[in-house]
Design a binder for these strands. Structure first.
Lengths: 205, 205
DNA sequence: TTGCTTACATACAAATATGAATGTATATTA
DNA sequence: TAATATACATTCATATTTGTATGTAAGCAA
């Protein structure tokens, strides 16, 4: 296999990314060598280095392939339309994110890698900063939605939208972490719907 | 420095543990070599290997030094005494844990290492299982406390103690994660008290 | 005081990983 | 169709890391 067409090269590239995800998941990012990724992708290290300059870049591409669409989805989903029921809107958003995890193994695996199979030091601390930035965005939008809920009289008395937004965000990051760690699903994966409903219901008047 | 007394050997051992924590924090567990730990502790690899059979064991000891007392504290603190105000009890427990982070740099650093500077694969997945077990215990005790709160009529109508306990646990693991990641403290570290108060207040009648 | 053990330091061998250099056959293009 | 750039495979030189093996001086027990 020497010189592929452009299209085939693109397929090779994607195979390498998928292989990286798989090996990262099994062995953790640090312990994974370029050789292992290459083998898993059915190529040699030469090919991997041709497409990616090093493991960090490969990791970033893998991550962005999953996260950029996900962030878009969040942005769309949290858009402040003329929603009659802001609280239900928040609930739908949370459920939707969980649904994305259930439906896409690539998303699921990438989450798992990022949460418990990656060490955020040196080059990787940049990733952490990006994640925190996203959090900020989500919190802001949650706050706006809670503000609208308050304006509509959906909320219990005197609840501060900013605080509610933070509480929801913390609840949800906790949920995502537990969702990922709870491999057999008995504790959280099978109960997300009820947990989310309960969380939102605590806010309702 | 050739042959120390028993006491001095114990000091050396502790210095190695502290050095490991420091290097783990800087470079992540995987990237840390025994050589780096030894250098940081002012000894050679020979000493490190004399005290610990490998990096994994050293990690475990470091972790247990911080976590076993912490778990004890939790057990004590969540004990079901004749408390008049179960909700306040929960609030105190949460605040106390945060306080432990604020007061002890070893605790703080160990948390940071375990959350964002360690990859839970192979030997380390055992640690993850232990953590989840602890979570179970905490959730159970929270549930009992919420049950007592319900019996005392502290809770809003028809709230299920089990659900409330899970929600609190998710909130708090989210908070711990964010607390650790929010290095400059602007987002969460300075607001934990209010966040916790708000969270508990959502449950109050 | 002798002899054994401890608490390390030093030296060694083997494995593994990296990046770059080089080779090469085929697409692509002029 | 000839020249060139592409998409890899192969090779090489260089670190790095690990575990162990061996050395050694001082503590400790008899």
């Amino acid at each position: 296999m020497v010189r592929q067409t452009k299209e085939n090269a693109e397929l090779t590239r994607q195979r390498i990314i998928d292989a990286a995800r798989q090996v990262f998941l099994e062995r953790g990012v640090s312990r994974t060598s370029m050789e292992q990724i290459a083998t898993a992708a059915g190529v040699t290290r030469g090919a991997v280095y041709w497409h990616f300059s090093n493991k960090t870049e490969l990791f970033s591409v893998m991550r962005e392939q999953v996260f950029l669409p996900l962030i878009d989805r969040m942005d769309d989903n949290l858009q402040l339309e003329n929603n009659e029921d802001p609280l239900a809107h928040i609930e739908n958003f949370l459920n939707g994110t969980i649904q994305a995890l259930n439906e896409s193994s690539a998303t699921r695996e990438t989450y798992e890698i990022m949460m418990i199979k990656c060490e955020y030091v040196e080059e990787f601390s940049e990733v952490l900063r990006q994640i925190l930035n996203n959090c900020d965005g989500i919190i802001q939008k949650l706050e706006q939605l809670y503000q609208r809920a308050k304006n509509k009289g959906q909320l219990r008395a005197s609840k501060d939208p900013a605080q509610l937004a933070l509480d929801t965000h913390l609840f949800f990051s906790g949920l995502l972490h537990m969702w990922v760690k709870d491999i057999d699903g008995s504790h959280f994966r099978n109960r997300t719907h009820a947990l989310i409903a309960n969380h939102i219901d605590l806010r309702r008047k």
